[in-house]
Write a protein that binds this DNA or RNA. Structure first.
Lengths: 199, 199
DNA sequence: ATTAAAGGTGAATGGGTATTCAGTTTATGA
DNA sequence: TCATAAACTGAATACCCATTCACCTTTAAT
C-alpha cells in the first residue's frame, strides 16, 4: 500500500488530526465518500480547509487510511474474542457475534469497507482476500483436529463471511425484524451451521 | 418509486434509448456511478449530450431505471429456474447456481445493485427487503411441507442471500481459486447447507 | 413535394469542489 | 524576551460536470 499517513506526535497536532479523522468517518458514513467534500470535513472538524492538507495528501489518501485502520481494528477485535475459545463451534459463534456487535456499534466501518468496491476495487479485493486467508488458516486447523467436516475451506470461508456480512447488514440497516436481539439471531445462525437447513 | 422512464416505441428512438442504456451499464460497471459522466455515456453511445435528456430526466433517474430493470431480471430468471424443481433441496441448489451464473454472465448487475447503498440507501434497503420477503414466502412453504428444519425463516433468508452473494462475489471478482468450476463450488455450498459445518 | 412531428446536436451555462498558497497566529526553547 | 518552528487560515485557483437550449436533420403522412 502506498499511503502510510504519518501520525502526528505533538499534543495539538494529534488532536487536530483526530478531529479531522472523526469528522471524515462520520460524514463518509452519513453521505458517502462522493457525497462528502473536504470542506464539509474541515468545517465539521472545526478547522480551515488548508489544515486538511497538513495531515493528509488528498481526500483519497484519507479514505484509504480510514479503511486500513478499520480493517486492522476488525481483525484485532475478532481475533481477540475468538482466541479465548477452544472449540471450533465456540470460535465460530464468538466470531460471528463479535462481528455483528462491532458492526452495530460502528456502522461506519461496515459502510466504508463496502464502499471501497466503488472507490478502489483493488483495496476491496485485498481486504476480502486477506480476510479469507486468515479464516482459511483457522479452518484448516479445525480440519486437522477433525472438528469440522471435509469441505473446501476456501469456499467455507466465503460462505461464513457471506453469512456474517449479510446478518450484519440486516442488523445495521434494520432490515426485517428482531434486529435488537443479537443473541437470538446468532442462535439461529449457529443452528443452521450446525445442523443444516433440511430435515 | 417515482421514476417510470417511458420506453420509446418507434424503431429509431428504441435503438438510441438502448445504446444509451448499454453504454451506461458498461460504464457504471467499469468506473462506478460517480466515475461516469453523462458525457462519457453519450460519447460511448455515439450520440450528443443533449440526446441523453430526450430519454432520461437525469443521470440518477437512469441509474434507478437500470437498477429496477436488473432486479426484475434477476428475480424473473431465478424464479423461472427454481419453479422447475419440486424439492426444497433442488430449489435451493438451482437458485444458488442460477444466481452465480447470472452474476458471472452479467457482473454489471452485481456491482450496480450493491452500489445503490451509496447512491440511495432506501433503494438498497427496498431491494434486499423485498428479495427477502419472496425468499421467506418460499421457505415458509417448505416449513409447512416439513422439508426444512424449524429455524427462523427470516434469518435463514438473509443467511442464504449472504452465502449466495459472497460466493457470487468470489466468482465475479475472482477471489481465491476454483472460480471457473461453478458446479464444484455449488456442490461445496450445498454440502454445508445440507450437513452443516461440524463433525 | 410539402410540412409537421420526431429525433438529434453540441457549445454554453451555472454550480460545485479538490487543492494551493501567501500570510497569520500560536507554541516552544534558549 | 525573542526568535524560530509548528500550526493554522480561508480566499483564490483551476478544473470538472449535469443540464439547457436554440437550432438542425430526418422521417413519414398527406
Amino acid at each position: 500500500m502506498q499511503t502510510p499517513i504519518p501520525e502526528p506526535t505533538t499534543r495539538n497536532a494529534k488532536a487536530t488530526f483526530n478531529h479531522i479523522l472523526d469528522a471524515a468517518i462520520e460524514l463518509f458514513y452519513k453521505n458517502g465518500y462522493h457525497g462528502t467534500t473536504v470542506n464539509n470535513i474541515t468545517k465539521h472538524a472545526g478547522v480551515a480547509a488548508g489544515t486538511f492538507y497538513l495531515y493528509f495528501p488528498s481526500k483519497l489518501a484519507l479514505y484509504k487510511h480510514v479503511l486500513i485502520t478499520f480493517s486492522h481494528n476488525i481483525r484485532r477485535e475478532i481475533a481477540a474474542k475468538v482466541s479465548l475459545k477452544s472449540t471450533r463451534y465456540e470460535k465460530e459463534r464468538e466470531g460471528i457475534k463479535a462481528f455483528i456487535l462491532l458492526a452495530k456499534k460502528h456502522p461506519q466501518m461496515y459502510n466504508i469497507i463496502w464502499e471501497s468496491l466503488y472507490i478502489d476495487r483493488e483495496l476491496f479485493k485485498d481486504y476480502y482476500e486477506s480476510f479469507a486467508l486468515r479464516y482459511i488458516r483457522g479452518l484448516n486447523e479445525s480440519v486437522k483436529n477433525e472438528e469440522i467436516r471435509d469441505i473446501d475451506t476456501e469456499v467455507i470461508s466465503y460462505i461464513l463471511m457471506g453469512i456474517t456480512n449479510f446478518i450484519g447488514l440486516k442488523v445495521v440497516l434494520d432490515l426485517g425484524t428482531n434486529n435488537n436481539d443479537v443473541d437470538y439471531i446468532v442462535d439461529q445462525v449457529m443452528d443452521l451451521i450446525q445442523h443444516g437447513l433440511f430435515k
